[in-house]
Structure formats: structure tokens, C-alpha cells
Amino acid sequence: MPIEIDIAHVARLARLGLDDDVLATYGAQLEVILEHAAKVQSLDTDGVEPTAHPLGLMNGFREDVARPSLDRAEVLAQAPDATDTHFRVPPALEQE
């Protein structure tokens, strides 16, 4: 069954600002890959539980106590833009 992909929508969800012609190439490749991947649908999985952790470990808990964290100056030194205390980014809201 051919699978149709709205590649521009997918790219927007993934925050990948690519040109239309580049996206068209990826879209065509994805359709071929997905056609192969869709073979998983040939198997009857009624009543089968999905596997997330292969050894079946469940939630891990620890005591809720303060622990040392990473050094703030060392962390901020790696940011493309920062103040002494914060990461800095362009405006999150578009101007009206």
C-alpha cells in the first residue's frame, strides 16, 4: 500500500527548516523506506503487549534529596548565547 507523506508538515513538527526541493527528495526516500517498514503490519499482533524495556524493568525510584548538579558556569560557557545565569534565545512570540 503506497503511503502518502505531507513532508512539509513533518518537517515543521521536527523543526527542520529545509527548502522545498530538498524536502521533496526526502519525502520520496521516506516513502520507499516506509513501504519496507510497513511489513510489520503483516503480523497478527492481537493481544500482544508492546515491549519498551527489553528486560521488563519498571520505574526506578530514589530518595528525594538534593544532590550536587553540574557547574553552572561550565554549563553556560558552552551555550551559543547566555547571561551569567541564563541561556538567552530570540523572542518566543512573534511580533503582532
Binding site: A37, V40, L43, T45, V48, E49, P50, T51, A52, P54
Partner: peptide, 10 residues
Amino acid sequence: FYGQAQKVRT
């Protein structure tokens, strides 16, 4: 897709 693939893992 993802859900079915996780069942195939099982």
C-alpha cells in the same frame, strides 16, 4: 507504525 513495531519486538 511505532506501536505495531513494539509489539513485533515482543
